[in-house]
Design a protein around this nucleic acid. Structure first.
Length: 800
DNA sequence: GTTAGATTAATTTAGACAGCATGTC
DNA sequence: CTAAATTAATCTAAC
């Protein structure tokens, strides 16, 4: 189909596409147009990655906007949100306004209602619906990227429920859903009353194959000789073979450690193939990587990158990931060894893809479980860069002759599994039922069931029995914990329930937080193994309404516990532990030896924790309590300025993990603050301080300084040591002292003074004061070596 | 008694969304 | 219903 023949699109679009070198639509795109995407029709497109999904989305959104509407593009990852934003900003030259909204980033330039196209994560959309964002009703077109994720047990239900809500709020809404190739695309189409484009077409050829021995067996029956020399591994042989053809390779492995080890080994394979020019550029990138953070992970990565190899996993910080992705796209880095981060993440195509490990540890499966066909196909789909490579090849590695056949059967020739709704699970419904009632989508049990009829789950099952049972269990739970009231068949969210729903908390997290805080105020301190019934659910609040009531005061007398404790005495550790044991925080793994270590720690600091310690005989709960303590300790270390390298080593995590924990803690502490005032508990001040400290990673005395833009934990500490102890002093500070404290970096010093509001931030002609020491004496308590870091880079996590 | 090397046992294991309210002399 | 790659611990044999 010629781009000139597109019905319903803005008149500038054909020329714009031609400027991009697009004269003809790809076949699946043409099918989509024939099915009416540009004319407001619903559509499900189940097509391979890199076969032009983005253009289908753009055609739908642009034509909808041309008719005077507003479009929403839903993505599963924040990184994808910014990638799509960059794509769509091309249209700003035609007067379109693009907005982004995710948990940690909101695009500037005013209200989302003024935007023509908004990109957001599914959770953010859900949250906006819960908070009655008015522009939701103006939407005319919603595009969902990677809809096959409705199959995901944790996050799938959110997407499912959110789509159902959007469609219910606005029956005329055009719904376009983009999916990887899946087994049952027609089920999705039925659910969404949509036309279907289901195609395997790809713009460049993809050959799947299996390597074994000295040969690469391809799916078309042919074989390529691909010999393994001396001691090298199969993967190395494939990488070498690709390099000889001047191509790059993406290797998927099943653990972080494997990714790092493989990258280290493959560096030796790549090194001899680099030109001097490439070596020099790679050395620069390696330096940038070292500058991102001062940890072992960072060093290892830099070493590999200097040789043209890299690893990529969630333990890397954002900066690391971006440097690796960019260097790989620029073809400087020739091999990336990655965990699944790269399979689902941003677009990083490669000539060849190697799926080295096809089994991955899965606790719930009791060992190594084979990856799903869908997941392996997603990885393989990264092979072949449109316009750059003549073809793509995706290779599985077999270690025996039998395995060759098994891999062909299991993955090469296999169809992806059907997608199935995971909505009928209690944790998912706990959250979504509360939200559905709180935002008025349903006011009775029947209304609730009727609403749930509009989900994929309902369209995939015949008997509603299972769903009804779970709904009733959840309603009971929500009522018992005072999130919902049920009166004469009428459902109503309590004020607490409304707050919880708007804060986007799992009700169970909210219950844990409220109970913990209340427990502290009651001063119930005879905690050891005194917990009551060994039930999974947290203790119930009093049956009558309200929380701080006379009945509780009476309880105090009963227990003859300590007098009420001062909420200001709640320690940061106590609060970090409280939010860490919540289902919204994903826990750190307890390694061997950790158990004893944190049992000791628990013994010493039990008084600081909120709520009764579970008995050691309640295996699961006690373990959770300990691993929450480990997480809490990590957060406490961060908030006492312990060096990043020390933390990564002490807890066996990467710099990216610290960031993740800190971010989650920030969010949950913010929510805890709101909850505390909601239920009239007086802990807001203590919570707020703990939150700000973990946000900036500083001790109490630096909180003010670290609030200045451009000042993170390290610079704040240096300024403090130089005698500048707060923002006001910084504003009127002696420039020589500031410059010395910032290790003579003029530009940095100017920026800092400017954001502090200094009347004359210019550093021209200023010399660093000689008597200012700039050595960081890390915030260690002396139990481990505290090495001071050599560079001045900010490990502040708050850049966004 | 020491130590290099071999054998065995234990340990570890992917990823990542969300609140709120903005700032200045 | 299921594993594999490291790493730590232990053992062995030669000196």
């Amino acid at each position: 189909m010629d781009v000139a023949d597109l019905p319903g699109v803005p008149e500038w679009l054909p020329d714009h596409l031609r400027d991009d070198g697009i004269e003809e639509l790809y076949p699946p795109q043409a099918e989509a147009v024939e099915a009416g995407v540009t004319e407001g029709e619903n559509l499900v497109a189940s097509i391979p990655t890199a076969s032009g999904k983005t253009l289908i989305a753009e055609l739908a959104m642009l034509s909808s906007v041309a008719r005077g509407g507003t479009a929403l593009y839903i993505v599963p990852l924040r990184a994808l949100a910014s990638e799509k934003q960059a794509d769509f900003e091309e249209f700003e030259q035609y007067g379109l306004d693009i907005g982004v909204s995710t948990g940690n980033y909101e695009s500037e330039g005013g209200w989302l209602a003024d935007k023509d196209i908004v990109v957001a994560t599914s959770e953010k959309v859900d949250s906006l619906v819960r908070n009655d964002a008015p522009w939701i009703e103006d939407l005319t077109c919603v595009v969902t990227d990677e809809v096959h994720l409705v199959d995901d047990g944790e996050r799938g239900p959110t997407l499912e429920v959110t789509l159902a809500k959007l469609r219910r709020l606005n029956p005329d809404l055009q719904t376009v859903a983009l999916s990887a190739t899946i087994g049952n695309a027609e089920a999705l189409a039925t659910w969404l009353d949509a036309g279907l484009v289901d195609s395997d077409w790809r713009p460049i050829d993809l050959q799947k194959g299996v390597h074994y021995g000295q040969a690469l067996h391809l799916e078309d029956g042919s074989q390529q000789r691909l010999s393994v020399q001396n001691n090298e591994k199969q993967t190395a042989a494939i990488v070498r073979d690709t390099l000889e053809d001047d191509g790059s390779t993406l290797v998927f492995v099943n653990s972080r450690r494997n990714a790092e080890a493989a990258a280290g080994r493959l560096a030796n394979t790549v090194r001899p193939h680099l030109t001097d020019e490439e070596r020099a550029q790679l050395a620069d990138i390696a330096e940038e990587i070292r500058d991102v953070s001062d940890t072992e992970t960072s060093d290892d990565l830099a070493d590999a990158v200097a040789d043209g190899a890299a690893f990529h996993h969630a333990g890397l910080s954002r900066g690391h990931r971006e440097l690796v992705e960019d260097a790989f796209r620029d073809r400087l880095v020739k091999v990336v060894c990655a965990t699944p981060t790269l399979a689902a993440g941003v677009n990083t195509p490669s000539r060849r893809v190697v799926v080295r490990d096809w089994r991955r540890y899965d606790g719930s499966a009791g060992g190594m479980a084979p990856l799903s066909v869908l997941e392996v196909h997603q990885m393989m789909g990264r092979a072949g860069r449109p316009g750059l490579d003549p073809y793509g090849e995706a290779v599985l590695i077999a270690s025996s002759h039998d395995e060759v056949d098994e891999l062909f059967e299991r993955y090469v020739w296999a169809d992806p599994e059907p997608v199935r709704s995971k909505l009928a699970a209690e944790p998912a419904l706990r959250t979504h039922i509360l939200a559905t009632v709180a935002s008025g989508f349903a006011r009775s049990r029947e209304g609730l069931l009727e609403f749930l009829e509009q989900t994929l789950y309902a369209s995939q099952t015949d008997e509603g029995g299972q769903l009804e049972r779970v709904v009733d269990d959840v309603l009971t739970y929500l009522q018992r914990n005072d999130f919902l009231e049920i009166e004469g068949g009428e459902l109503d969210a309590t004020s607490l329930g409304h707050t919880v729903s708007r804060l986007y908390l799992d009700p169970m997290s909210a219950a844990e937080i409220v109970d913990g805080l209340r427990d502290w105020e009651r001063g119930a301190s005879d905690s050891t193994s005194a917990s009551g019934a060994p039930s999974e659910t947290p203790p119930e609040p009093p049956a009558d309404s309200g929380f701080t009531t006379a009945s509780e005061l009476a309880e105090d007398a009963d227990e003859s516990a300590d007098a009420d404790r001062d909420p200001d005495d709640i320690s940061a550790l106590g609060l970090y532990h409280l939010v860490s044991r919540t289902p919204d925080m994903y826990q750190l793994y307890l390694r061997s030896g950790d158990r004893e270590e944190y049992e000791m720690e628990l013994f010493e600091r039990e008084d600081e924790l909120l709520g009764p310690t579970p008995s050691e005989f309640e295996e699961g709960r006690f373990e959770d309590w300990l691993s929450a303590l480990k997480t809490a300790r990590l957060l406490e270390d961060w908030a006492t300025e312990v060096d990043e390298a020390t933390i990564t080593e002490r807890y066996g995590v990467g710099p990216g993990d610290i960031r993740g924990k800190v971010e989650t803690a920030q969010w949950l502490l913010g929510a805890a603050e709101s909850l505390a005032s909601e239920v009239d508990l007086d802990a807001a001040r203590a919570i707020s301080e703990a939150r700000i400290r973990v946000e900036h990673g500083v001790r109490e005395e630096l909180v003010d300084l670290a609030g200045v833009r451009g000042v993170g934990r390290k610079r704040a500490r240096r300024l403090f040591q130089a005698g500048i102890t707060d923002r006001a002093q910084l504003r009127d500070a002696d420039k020589a002292v500031v410059l010395a404290a910032l290790r003579g970096r003029r530009k940095t010093a100017e920026n800092v003074l400017e954001s502090a509001g200094h009347r004359d931030p210019s550093m021209e002609g200023v010399e660093p004061a000689p008597d200012v020491s700039v050595d960081l004496d890390d915030g260690e308590d002396g139990d481990t070596n505290a090495e001071s870091t050599a560079n001045d880079d900010q490990s502040s996590l708050g850049d966004f």
